[in-house]
Design a binder for these strands. Sequence first.
DNA 1: CTGTTAGCGCCTTCAG
DNA 2: CTGAAGGCGCTAACAG
Lengths: 362, 362
Amino acid sequence: MTGNTPDGPTAPPLDAGPRRSSPATLEDVARAAGVSLATASRSLNGSSRTVNADYRSKVLDAAARLNYSPNLSAQAVARGSTMTVALVVADITDPYFSSIAAGVVAEADQGRLIVTMAATERDSERELEIVRTLRGQRPKVIILAGSRREGDPSQAALKSELEDYERAGGRVVLISRNELGFRTVQIDNASGASALAASLVELGYRRFSVLTGNRELKTAADRLDGFTAELERAGIRVEADRVVQSAFTRDGGYEGMQTLIAAGLQPNEAVFAVNDVMAVGALSALRDAGLTPGADVAVAGFDDIPTVQDVWPTLTTVTVPLVEVGRTALRLALEDADAAAVSAGSPVATSVVVRDSTPRRA
Amino acid sequence: MTGNTPDGPTAPPLDAGPRRSSPATLEDVARAAGVSLATASRSLNGSSRTVNADYRSKVLDAAARLNYSPNLSAQAVARGSTMTVALVVADITDPYFSSIAAGVVAEADQGRLIVTMAATERDSERELEIVRTLRGQRPKVIILAGSRREGDPSQAALKSELEDYERAGGRVVLISRNELGFRTVQIDNASGASALAASLVELGYRRFSVLTGNRELKTAADRLDGFTAELERAGIRVEADRVVQSAFTRDGGYEGMQTLIAAGLQPNEAVFAVNDVMAVGALSALRDAGLTPGADVAVAGFDDIPTVQDVWPTLTTVTVPLVEVGRTALRLALEDADAAAVSAGSPVATSVVVRDSTPRRA
DNA sequence: CTGTTAGCGCCTTCAG
DNA sequence: CTGAAGGCGCTAACAG
């Protein structure tokens, strides 16, 4: 039980090395360069003011020699603003969110911004709490991915929290649906779902079910509505008992499909899962029930996450440029009000991709 | 071209609201509570010192009333240290990394830590650059997921950069393989691959190929070595031309399998892809070539990312508790040297899961 | 226990 | 163009 290391030859020297050499400060650099603090600051960090080229290079030298790196916290305090963008998602392992995150991160480092990340685990109270603690960071931007819930009591609190934040100069961007009155990267869920419905009808399907996830999620509701609206236009009604609610996750899709199967599948039926992870779960449920997805029952999803091209059958879905959505969100946040008013107007383009999970019916 | 908003009734009021009400400062709180700055600080933020209960509650009241939120940057400057943990991954959309990230994030908010994220895009020069700019944040912890490259020239620079960082009081944790002499969450890639090989042999396979990704990646190399070593123990040699290199990604797996197919598949062959995303790509390549994975050729992967249970056939693989690895990484970083020496010693447990992609051979 | 007072590292007027 | 000085929000000795 003593502190000796119990492992092999590659054990790291956890406690080696000299003690605490703190990073060089601007003052160190200034002194080393023989100039004042102000001059050092001006030549190192982007000041609009010009500095004698001589001094300037002396400072740059000294900085390099001392391996100087400006303390961002100190800069933030002095400047009164940070270079941080805070991203809050429901679940990082969900490809929907990780794709968006990738976009945000990619765009961020083109602007020397730092992105911090938090996960709500799909709990809107946690989301509120997260946004509250986020304030401490004084981020320049807050991006909220993942959709709001219908009639959620914490929504009002969230909204006012975000409004306070904007009033203090911050910028919030929502992804998916413009519900709270902030800038948002709109995804036209309803019309995407409508287009999908139209495609399925064209392929010869006449009987439909939908795995609608949590119907209180506005995204889910919009997709369901768009889908059924188009079907009605085509004279097709989807029975109330063929719309099943479950979690907005892979397992939710799996379970939803199980209840559909238990209720009895219809001949030539197509089931629309309101997102791809659910659809993928649904495929597995079919298989585990001894059915062949595609042949026995068609399945379609929404989002076009990367994995749907590797499941079998490959999944028919509605493409959403998720990574681009992430980039756009950050860009939108950084624009000034006028430009943002314009760009926030048009939803990102979606399109349906027909793959093997919805073969044409004779 | 004017600034009017070109969209529907739900257009957000992008420029509404009163101007710039900055957040309350500690001083505001102190004044409102009628106490000194110091007292306010002591009762609000975790000081070891005690404060008169009366004053204390006055301060708490005032803080609540003013909706006070401590400025973390200012705290960082004053305290000389941040609450930030920086996570650098290769690619956020890769389930391997997003699972780890989820673990880090989950663990972080149990400790009121903030996690920032950056992506190297699998470019080790970018990784070095990222670590360098990370210094500005003065993070308490840097976690590097994604493995080093054999003989990479920037490795030395990275190492010394990280050493400087530790010398300044920071803590670095590596994931996967202990190569640079820092704390690391070890994943026993070699023995996991050996166990997998043993299982496959037991299932009746005698001919093998491996999709080895980028062989310069130590993780890939270790898995390859462990796999072939076990086979040799069983008296089986894998021909040099049956080990194909390609990218360490889904597409790499796809392409690798294509070249394997082109070179001619062997009867009852099993191909080991050194990670799951590659294996999944390989499955698709087989299918696109008109073959049936599992029946025509067995496939196995490594990592046990979530999606491998939803592909068909479900994938035989080596389970790595990725989310837990993320949590462990952060925990390890926060431990003191003695404790860390102990925990860093033992690799996380892996185990092989046999699924449908490697049916038993007669 | 409380308040005063230096800083922390950096930026930014403001005089020279 | 340069340097001195004040300030950003907060913490931590240091006296009372």
